[in-house]
């Protein structure tokens, strides 16, 4: 089975990092993965997005027109990618930065106020980690325990940041888990996708 997703936000919101961590986690779980960024001027201050594929088989096209999941960190990202998500897919909206509901009714919508949660934890820069945890909670695409060990690895040079970011991903996970079908269920309806 293959699970593909688009992570999108303003440059600086951490969309590319979230995507990389999902790809790393998938790889550590023995999956085939690809991570494809949008690149160019939009890297610098505008919207940034990446496409991540996590699969049991070698990844075919790394370019995904209709992803199974979208993480929209801001409004322009929701505007741009909402229509592309597959029916029965997942849209995770960061309501801290998005002031409208998705229009789609054929997808599972999960709403998490990532920035507000991060602020509440006293870690405003941890909004990306909250969003990462929430995405894992909403989709189950990778194991939370892989994500946690990645967080430890990522911040290993700044031990003070490990605990606060672990808190952030867990808070995001808790806010989203159980709100959307797990990957295994979603994939069975599209066994050959």
């Amino acid at each position: 089975m293959q699970y593909d997703m688009i992570i999108a936000g303003f440059g600086g919101q951490g969309a590319l990092l979230i995507g990389k961590m999902l790809a790393y986690a998938g790889m550590h779980q023995g999956k085939e993965v690809s991570w494809l960024p949008s690149y160019g001027p939009e890297m610098r201050g505008g919207t940034a997005n990446c496409t991540v594929v996590v699969s049991d088989r070698p990844v075919g096209s790394p370019v995904i027109k209709s992803p199974r999941a979208l993480l929209a960190l801001n409004l322009p990202s929701l505007d741009k990618f909402e229509d592309s998500v597959r029916a029965d897919g997942v849209i995770l909206v960061n309501t801290s930065m998005v002031n409208r509901d998705p229009r789609r009714t054929d997808v599972k919508v999960v709403k998490v106020a990532a920035n507000d949660i991060a602020n509440g934890l006293g870690n405003p820069r941890g909004a990306n980690m909250v969003a990462l945890g929430a995405f894992v909670g909403a989709t189950g695409v990778v194991d939370m325990k892989e994500v946690e060990s990645l967080v430890r690895e990522t911040f290993s040079r700044k031990p003070a940041l490990v605990e606060v970011n672990l808190k952030a991903v867990r808070a995001g996970f808790e806010a989203a888990v159980g709100t959307a079908p797990a990957v295994a269920e979603a994939s069975q309806s599209n066994a050959n996708g």
Binding site: M27, L36, V59
Partner: peptide
């Protein structure tokens, strides 16, 4: 192509 350069894979 640009994808080969920019893409991350194992």
């Amino acid at each position: 192509d640009g994808l080969i350069g920019q893409m991350m894979e194992p």
